[in-house]
Amino acid sequence: MREFGLLLRRDLALLLPGGRGGAGVLPLLFFLAVAMLYPFAVGPEPELLARTGGGVIWIAALLAAILPLERLVTGDLDAGVFDQLHLRGIGEEWAMASRLLAHWLTFAPFLLLAALPAAALLGLAQETTRTVLLGLLAGTPGLAAIGLIVAALTASLRGGAALAGLMTIPLAVPILIFGAGALARNDASGLWLTAAISLALCAIAPLAAGAAIRAAREQ
């Protein structure tokens, strides 16, 4: 447990905006930029924006989740960090579990905060904003888990970053369907399904990403 704490502290320092390994605040600015551009592209009618704005925030969140993937695993894999952890009896799964938690913590809270001005820019109703925020809260752990698995799988490939983005999008479709779909329904079933998908993905991610890192050694 002490080891996990040390791992998590290092991962957080690595990934926090302004940290040394993460993409910093870029994903957030990207997220806000999409929300800002959308009215320019489809026209400023408040009704249209209020009806489609929630979906736009979801798309922007999904795209912003792809940006930090490049540096999520590659740097440490190249530097031999996972080898040294392995020699100390700390399995790749532990390292990936810590990385997943750190990735979510350094990404989701800021995204949720940025979703507020984005919702204001799009003129979303209070009720819609609440559903979007709850949906993102339920969906971002799943997005982080998908991102980690894909980042670990593509870490040892040349041009892995572009591939990571391409692979993440189809895998994120279920989260998008239920998370954004919750906006069109009056009950919370979509949110619960999103949360369920996220939980399942978070349970699988450390194992899958750990296996990917071990496989990368054999190349």
Binding site: A79, Q84, L87
Partner: peptide
Amino acid sequence: LLDERLALDEA
């Protein structure tokens, strides 16, 4: 193990 990979954070 001591090899050419440092496993130290560059920054």
